[in-house]
């Protein structure tokens, strides 16, 4: 569907849009990562013995030495807040009154970007220890949204 139509409010311009729909496959490394979240509630990394780095999420190659990674590691479900932000805009750029609390949580030598929950914005600190809160197993689909958020370890 290609639309090219006159915008009644702006006589000198034309509007066009395009529905872009793509299928994304996450590959061998990503597939196992999400299956393990869905089925086991475990977060997997892969270890590069040469560089001694543990990639989280798991990948099948080391971006440093380009070696193939075959050592799968259960890296646990806790990490710490490497950095965070309170985001005051929605996806489309509109303002939001209540900010999203977003963090990059370090796990192994990588980590995950996600929401922080069960915490007030002013309580969040870099270095804070947090844990994963998964959706109930029956609701998990094998996606990043199987994680509800991270929350501080009480």
């Amino acid at each position: 569907m290609t639309l090219l139509k006159r915008d009644p409010k702006a006589p000198q311009a034309w509007l066009g849009n395009l529905p872009v729909t793509s299928r994304y496959t996450f590959g061998l490394g990503g597939e196992r990562f999400f299956r393990s979240i869905k089925d086991e509630g475990e977060i997997l990394g892969t270890h590069c013995p040469k560089c001694d780095r543990t990639y989280v999420p798991s990948t099948i190659f080391c971006e440093r030495c380009l070696g193939k990674l075959e050592e799968w590691v259960d890296v646990g479900t806790t990490g710490n807040v490497h950095t965070f932000t309170l985001l005051y805009e929605n996806y489309d750029g509109s303002h939001r009154e209540e900010p999203e609390i977003i963090a990059f949580v370090s796990i192994g030598d990588g980590g995950l970007v996600h929401r922080l929950g069960d915490v007030e914005p002013e309580e969040v600190e870099i270095g804070m220890e947090v844990e994963v809160v998964f959706k109930p197993k029956a609701e998990r689909e094998g996606s990043i949204l199987d994680i509800v958020h991270f929350r501080p370890i009480a």
Partner: peptide, 19 residues
């Protein structure tokens, strides 16, 4: 797959980097 499903406005990357 990893980030876009969370539907965060991309300015969050700058906010986290600055922090």
């Amino acid at each position: 797959v990893l980030n876009r499903p969370l539907r965060f406005n991309t300015h969050f990357v700058a906010g986290m980097e600055m922090n």
